Simulated assay, not measured.
Amino acid sequence: MIDLRSDTVTKPTAEMRKAAYEAEVGDDVYNEDPTVNKLEEKAAEMLGKEAALFVTSGTQGNQIAVLTHCRIGNEIIVEENSHIFNYEGAAISAFAGVQPRTIRGVRGAMNPADVEAAIQEDDIHAGETGLICIENTHNRAGGAVVSLENMEEIYKIASKNHIPVHLDGARLFNAAVALQRPVKDIAKYTDTVQFCLSKGLGAPVGSIIAGSEVFVKQARKWRKRLGGGMRQAGIIAAPGLVALQTMVERLAIDHKNARKLADGLMNINGIKVVNQVDTNIILVDVSERGLTSNQFAQLLKENGVLVSTFGPQLVRFTTHYDVSVESIEKTLQIIKDL
């Protein structure tokens, strides 16, 4: 099977497996796992933040950030198609007791003027704005890169109003490679940031959240409350360290493969690529074929290709480390034949 469902399906490299086997470990709840400590220090350095924390998943990282920044009854400003709002089981409400204030974005980017207008005034009828969240790259916008100019404007507005900014940077390194900038150039327009080790970077598990030392100290307690305190976690942190050291620059290959796939799909009758392909995600409308996304995905599955459905007519293709140029060419041929 050619698996284009998500970059979460990547298998760890041989170097990652070896690092996991040889990892020096300790009890991370006591801050005594040297491999976890190295991973957190490396991540904080790359992001330009004071400290970082290894967590089990991107969703857990985002929820810890919301819990740390906000109080019950706050509002958080999010883009209406953001992962935090659509794909995390309403956890911001279930756990943090906050409600989302959604803003319609353009290719995942919120208009700074809309963000400013959404900030609640001091009013007994309203929940105070406790946090502004940005997603970069933006999943539902097809891996779109939010510009640094947009992030800077929102960050200035937030700072003026004494509101923290959190970046859901699950695919932050894809954004950095697409922009040809170090990740700290993106992270500097945020107070806190989360990124996944287990997507394009290819590690088997885990994410990082980072910010000030005060934030991370509080976040560590929330991680414990959520059952995320890990013991000899160096075994799973070691592949993450390898990922940061060896898997960042090669993301450009995934982006190149995605553009090759998109170009090929656009030449097939009844297949419409609906997003600008900035990184490793292609969104395709199959309605002109008279098929639903589920029917199209099933047809591909029967012929050796796995994709994700993204709505009644939309299908998502995602390139990653385990997808070669040959896999792209084979996928295009299969779809042409069908």
Score class of each variant (00 low, 15 high):
G290E: 01
G270H: 05
V286Y: 00
A297D: 01
N280C: 12
L299P: 00
D278M: 07
Q295W: 03
I271N: 03
N303I: 02
N303D: 07
L299C: 00
L300M: 06
E288K: 04
N294W: 03
I271R: 03
T292E: 07
I268K: 08
V274D: 01
Q298N: 14
G290A: 07
N280I: 00
Q276C: 06
L300K: 05
T279F: 06
Q295G: 13
Q298A: 15
N269G: 12
V273Q: 07
N294K: 09
K272R: 12
I271W: 04
L300T: 06
N269Q: 10
N294F: 09
V277N: 08
V284H: 08
T292M: 06
V274I: 15
L299M: 11
V284M: 11
N303H: 14
L300A: 10
R289I: 00
I271Q: 02
D278E: 05
N269A: 08
N269D: 13
N294G: 11
Q295V: 13
Q298K: 15
E288F: 07
E302D: 13
A297C: 11
G270Q: 10
K272N: 14
L283R: 08
T279R: 03
I281P: 02
N275V: 04
F296A: 13
I271D: 04
V286H: 03
V277F: 02
N275M: 03
R289Q: 12
Q298R: 15
N280W: 03
L300V: 11
R289W: 00
E302T: 07
K301F: 11
E302A: 13
G290L: 07
Q276Y: 14
T279G: 06
I282Y: 03
V284I: 13
I271H: 02
G290T: 04
L300P: 06
S287W: 04
V273P: 07
T292A: 08
I268A: 07
V277G: 09
D278A: 11
S293L: 10
N280S: 14
E288A: 11
Q276I: 10
T292L: 10
N275L: 08
A297E: 01
D285Q: 10
T279E: 02
Q298L: 15
E302G: 09
V273C: 12
D278W: 05
L283F: 11
I271S: 06
T292V: 11
S287A: 14
G290Y: 02
Q298D: 11
N303E: 12
L291Q: 15
I268F: 01
L300Y: 02
S287C: 12
G290S: 05
